[in-house]
Simulated scan of single mutants.
Amino acid sequence: MCGRYSLSKSKIELEERFQAEMLPEFKPRYNIAPTQLVPVITSGSSKGFSFFYWGITPEFGKNKPVAQKLINAKAETVDQKISFKSSFQKRRCIIPADGFYEWKKLGKKTKIPYRFTLREAELFSMAGIWEEYETLNGEIQHTFLILTTTPNEIVSEIHDRMPVILTKQQEKVWLDSYSKEEDLKQILSPFSSDLMISYTVSPLVNTVQNDTPAVMRKTSPMDQHGNYTLFG
């Protein structure tokens, strides 16, 4: 799964990497969580960033608060599930990021947070689908979810799923309204572990309200609560 990620780059860096226009008031994010309003690029508007809520409402599930919605979908079955099939065919998006977080379980109660990035800490995108729905007040809102796949070698040490990370060429295929379904499915695969790194971070990331650079800094597991050690 992917339940937390970061987008700590500047407006200029985002615009240069994705060749899309960002809102002037954009500020870097360090601890993005479900239900929050964050930037995406859709297949129908690839020259500008849109802001959608993270957490999707299937077409049949209207009038639900954002917190009750799904945040991820399995890439292996996204074209088969009735709740996602239409979005997969017609409403695809990419979600810009520069890292994501997962937690390694140590015993029954202890979890160590890890951050995963590309080797040069550069921007990347995650594959997503989006949906439009009507709120209880009759307002139209847009939401998205992140597609996940089986983990590569580096992520599998921590978790059994990882977000689908796309290359620049794959982004073009994913956002192209005319792409064939077989071509779309082909790119929904684990990203190369040779191009990624991971490291432990502060437990500050556990609290959504902590949206500062401190949550991304490399931290020894022993420093987190004074008595943690990693096994394997």
Rank of each mutant, 00 (worst) to 15 (best):
Asn63Pro: 13
Gly3Ile: 03
Ser192Ile: 02
Glu25Asp: 15
Arg17Met: 11
Ser50Ala: 15
Glu16Arg: 09
Arg161Gln: 06
Leu147Asp: 01
Pro96Lys: 08
Ile129Asp: 00
Ile12Trp: 10
Ala73Phe: 00
Gln141His: 14
Pro163Glu: 02
Gly232Lys: 12
Tyr228Met: 13
Ser125Tyr: 02
Leu188Cys: 10
Thr77Ile: 14
Leu147Gly: 02
Glu59Lys: 15
Ser193Gln: 09
Asp194Trp: 11
Thr229Arg: 06
Tyr101Ala: 05
Pro24Leu: 04
Gln170Asn: 13
Phe231Met: 07
Glu134Phe: 09
Met162Leu: 04
Asn206Ser: 07
Thr110Arg: 11
Asn210Glu: 05
Leu184Lys: 03
Gln80Gly: 15
Met1Ser: 12
Glu132Lys: 11
Leu37His: 12
Ile129Thr: 03
Gln169Leu: 14
Glu132Thr: 12
Ser220Tyr: 11
Gln169Trp: 10
Ala127Leu: 05
Gly48Lys: 14
Arg119Trp: 08
Phe51Trp: 12
Asp194Arg: 13
Leu145Glu: 00
Pro39Tyr: 01
Thr212Asn: 13
Gln224His: 03
Glu132Leu: 10
Tyr53Asp: 06
Phe52Leu: 09
Asn72Tyr: 04
Arg4Leu: 07
Thr117Glu: 02
Ser192Met: 06
Ser177Lys: 13
Glu153Arg: 15
Tyr30Glu: 08
Val155Asp: 00
Gly128Cys: 12
Lys168Val: 14
Val66Arg: 09
Glu132Trp: 03
Ile197Glu: 04
Lys69Gly: 12
Phe124Ile: 08
Ser198Thr: 02
Leu184Asp: 02
His142Tyr: 13
Val38Leu: 10
Phe100Asp: 02
Glu181Asn: 14
Thr150Ile: 12
Val155Glu: 01
Asp160Trp: 03
Asp98Pro: 00
Leu23Thr: 14
Gln224Cys: 09
Val208Phe: 00
Lys85Ile: 10
Ser83Arg: 02
Gly48Phe: 12
Ala127Ile: 01
Ser198Arg: 12
Arg4Ile: 03
Phe18Cys: 11
Val66Gln: 05
Glu134Leu: 12
Ser156Pro: 01
Val78Tyr: 04
Ala73Cys: 04
Val205Asp: 00
His142Leu: 09
Pro113Asn: 10
